[in-house]
């Protein structure tokens, strides 16, 4: 197991280098002059522009600039914005907000998605199964924009005005974990639907497996056949999905953060792209990629914990 962890960690290094370079190259290939963007419509003094270009290494070849960038990442400040602030200060608190949001969504997804999926599989073909299927179809067909505003209105506003229950804050992050419940659920809706279907399929497939029949033939009680012999095997594909989804949820947080006015990284990314603040954009995307890679690493390790065939390869 130790060797497996080290191997996976080493394998993450080239992935990290490759992806950061790609992001770096793509963002800098975008048209437009960032120095001009600083000044807006006004004309920029050519001498000042030349100095700034020198200072931000804009005249160096891409690969050299990438080298400087790597140095900044390692030093932890992710470079300096064209306005002179360390990029890391712009991150401050924002990644935490988005990470909390995405984690809340992931928890909703895991609990509701896996729960409903298992239930549907066990009641296969009966009305519960059909109702759950209909519910998942409903979830995927309502856009986040709609479900977000509706839930905000019903649970955030009307619950308070009509019944006096102010449990769900309408916006902002002043109420701690409660602030994340509504946006977390909204962010999770589509994933809940997918995970429900995936769980249902996975458990049904596992229940057909020969080793489940063996467990029954050994005289094991049904609860044990399901809970020990089938469940663990059917969880394996779900772990992969959940791990990959953490990255997707963080990337997809822009709309949810806007609806619920959460000061997260999604909002910041949107603003920075708009303002052509390339160092910030690259910084944010780099951290997102880092999170994604770490999540994948955790998935691989969990996978190895759940499935000994991987561990002993």
């Amino acid at each position: 197991m130790g060797r497996f962890v080290i191997r996976r960690l080493l394998q993450a290094i080239p992935v990290l280098l490759g992806t950061t370079f790609l992001i770096f190259a793509i963002v800098y290939a975008l048209p437009g002059d960032p120095i001009q963007a600083l000044a807006g419509e006004r004309r920029v003094d050519p001498i000042l522009a030349a100095t700034l270009r020198e200072q931000f290494h804009l005249n160096d070849p891409l690969i050299v600039r990438y080298g400087y960038y790597l140095r900044d990442i390692v030093s932890g400040n992710f470079g300096t914005t064209f306005r002179g602030l360390p990029v890391s200060t712009i991150f401050e608190g924002k990644f935490a907000v988005t990470l909390k949001l995405a984690t809340t969504a992931l928890l909703f997804e895991a609990v509701i998605g896996i729960g409903l999926g298992l239930w549907a599989a066990l009641r296969r073909g009966r009305w519960e199964d059909k109702a759950i299927l209909a519910f998942t179809l409903l979830l995927v067909s309502i856009p986040t924009l709609v479900s977000g505003f509706v839930l905000q209105l019903v649970l955030g506003v009307q619950l308070k005005t009509s019944l006096g229950i102010a449990f769900f804050p309408v916006a902002g992050v002043q109420d701690g974990i409660r602030s994340y419940l509504l946006p977390g659920f909204v962010l999770a809706t589509v994933s809940i639907a997918y995970l429900t279907r995936l769980t249902r399929t996975s458990l049904m497939e596992t229940l057909r497996a020969d080793y489940v029949r063996t467990a029954v033939a050994k005289g094991m009680p049904r609860s044990r056949v399901l809970g020990r012999h089938a469940l663990r095997n059917s969880l394996i594909p779900l772990v992969t999905y959940l791990g990959a989804d953490l990255g997707a949820l963080m990337g997809g947080a822009v709309i949810t953060e806007t609806i619920f006015n959460l000061p997260g990284i999604g909002q910041q990314l949107f603003t920075s792209v708009y303002l052509r603040e390339n160092p910030v954009v690259v910084g944010i995307v780099t951290v997102l990629v880092l999170i994604y890679i770490v999540a994948n690493l955790v998935v691989d390790l969990l996978y190895a914990v759940l499935d000994p065939r991987i561990r002993y390869e």
């Binding site: 020969d210 080793y211 063996t214 467990a215 095997n233």
Partner: peptide, 12 residues
């Protein structure tokens, strides 16, 4: 006991 012991034993 069953025919294919690899699939009849639980892999995990």
């Amino acid at each position: 006991i069953f025919q294919d012991a690899l699939s009849a034993l639980n892999p995990v």
